[in-house]
Design a protein around this nucleic acid. Structure first.
Lengths: 243, 243
DNA sequence: CAGTGGTCTAGACCACTGC
DNA sequence: CAGTGGTCTAGACCACTGA
């Protein structure tokens, strides 16, 4: 039952790896409760405290969460720590993913090299779905987004009316295509506003922008989506505490 | 002995607060070993496991660190998680704080409003020390820095030969002025390169830059230093993993 | 070698949830 | 009420450090 990791590692460490593997493989599914601590201790033949320590680590890692009296559950990623949250409107309000969102177009296109690389379409040039979206806060356009999706399984989106798209895309990916976004990589870089972003964000020529690129993965590690979000540099501020 | 925090909190939580207070107040000094776990359990009349849990939290918080066989020590902040580490040279090498560093000037000046606010000089306009510094990686100027220090206690620096400044300023603050930087706040914003930065970073007009502002605090909460570091936007890339 | 933190066990009781 | 996670205790033994 114990994962085949280095046997010199502490028990609780190997247990953690075992549990993490159960999540990664889908044995423990997102949203579901995992076995109780007492049961895990019994089935693995270890003390309850050791199971708790392994679970503590997974909670710290953000893979699961506990609810006293109910159980321990596999976490559904919320991406609430996305760097997008550091954009703010003129009135100081932060952008949120429940805010107004305007789909401007949904097209089938051949992705340029950066988007193709983002989607990991290595082989022959293949078409993909290209969505242009504007995200607003307090009525002000804050983020201009280019979203790329593979045709498989998202092709049906091409026949949708853009105005019918939900604000939150990931829950829609799941309910409609059974695609769960389990993880993502995000990078922030800095550039001068390209013309298309200037237009949609109402920027002058030569203004600085923040460029957020995100590659989203399914539970099995396939690239599910690649997106680039561009925001006014004057509307971005990232703050951290150093100790 | 227990801190006067909410008595409804768990024991280990109140213990953690007590220990954190001992560090903040200087009872446990930076670099020193704290009492052994067994001794803390004895003096506070709790079980060893409870002390360990409190210490676990402080380790997670980054306030202390353990060394098996030697003891547990109050951590000296290294600021290794500064956003400055996301700048990179043309060869891909990241900037480090051990890299070449060139002090360009050290002057007594009246700080402009932003620097005065950064130093929290609220009252009457007061002079401060203004240091201009260039940080290089692989011979390439990567960060242009404006550093402001209060006259008290740093005035003697005005008589130093700039070329004799150490690469690492914080250890010098401590050894020479007995000022320990215990914490800092850092913000990243985005702008178009101001002329002075253009010149030192060899940028053209209208290029985008990353602006890093840092306010450093002593253990007693006083502002010890305020600095603004400017780097080429093309040389900045911040990457995170989302779960 | 004594003294430190690291791991693991066993068990008691508490706090909260949902039926 | 039964079942869950949360707190706390007591103690054994291991791994590592430095004298």
């Amino acid at each position: 039952m114990i994962a085949r990791t280095d046997a010199r590692l502490p028990l609780y460490h190997r247990l953690r790896d075992t549990f993490a593997e159960a999540i990664a493989s889908g044995t423990w599914r997102i949203g579901d409760a995992i076995p109780t601590e007492a049961e895990l201790a019994r089935t693995h033949g270890v003390a309850l405290g050791t199971v708790r320590k392994a679970i503590d680590h997974l909670v710290d890692d953000g893979l699961i969460y506990r609810v006293q009296g109910r159980g321990t559950f596999v976490r559904r990623p919320t991406f609430s720590s996305s760097l997008a949250r550091f954009f703010f409107a003129h009135d100081g309000r932060r952008i949120t993913d429940r805010e107004e969102s305007r789909i401007m177009s949904v097209r089938r296109e051949t992705p340029p090299p950066d988007a193709a690389a983002g989607l990991k379409l290595d082989g022959a040039p293949a078409d993909a779905i290209h969505i242009l979206r504007l995200r607003l806060t307090s009525g002000e356009p804050l983020l201009f987004e280019q979203i790329w999706l593979p045709l498989e399984p998202f092709a049906p989106l091409l026949h949708d009316e853009p105005s019918t798209f939900p604000v939150l895309l990931y829950p829609m990916y799941e309910s409609r295509f059974d695609v769960v976004v389990a993880r993502a990589e995000e990078t922030l870089s800095i550039a001068v506003a390209p013309p298309i972003a200037q237009e949609h964000l109402r920027l002058g020529a030569g203004e600085a922008v923040a460029v957020l690129e995100r590659r989203a993965f399914s539970q099995t590690g396939e690239v599910v989506e690649w997106r680039r979000s561009i925001g006014d540099g004057k509307r971005f501020r990232y703050a951290i505490d150093l100790r």
